[in-house]
């Protein structure tokens, strides 16, 4: 969908992921999409260098979000959200409906 614009499909997946979930870490994103973590890390680094995403360490995990200081963030989010409307329902159910609300440790999933 936006692959032509962003140059590769991984960037598109990362942007959809951040648009839906708000934040993510490389291994988590890689597991959701079933792609090697180094490909996700590589593209996150590219996005971070461009000022589009920002990261911070939470414990040992580097957590990525959209960079709120990116001057075209509003427009980018609108574009990503508009493109997301065209993601097939089945794909949305697989990749973009992961449980994010808290769950006490020990409780069965």
């Amino acid at each position: 969908m936006l692959e032509g614009l962003f140059g590769n499909i991984i960037i598109e997946k990362i942007l959809f992921f951040l648009s839906v979930y708000g934040e993510g870490y490389p291994l988590g994103i890689a597991r959701v999409f079933g792609v090697p973590v180094n490909r996700i890390q590589q593209q996150l680094k590219r996005l971070e260098n461009g000022g589009i995403v920002a990261s911070r360490l939470v414990g040992n995990v580097r957590l990525y979000t959209f960079n709120p200081r990116f001057p075209f963030l509003k427009e980018l989010k609108e574009l990503v959200a508009r493109a997301y409307e065209f993601v097939p329902k089945k794909e949305k159910e697989i990749y973009y409906r992961i449980r994010k609300r808290p769950r006490r440790p020990g409780k069965p999933l």
Binding site: N49, G51, R69, P71, K74
Partner: peptide, 10 residues
């Protein structure tokens, strides 16, 4: 830092 020089959205 990645351009453009911006202050928030301006």
């Amino acid at each position: 830092v990645s351009p453009p020089a911006a202050l928030g959205s301006e």
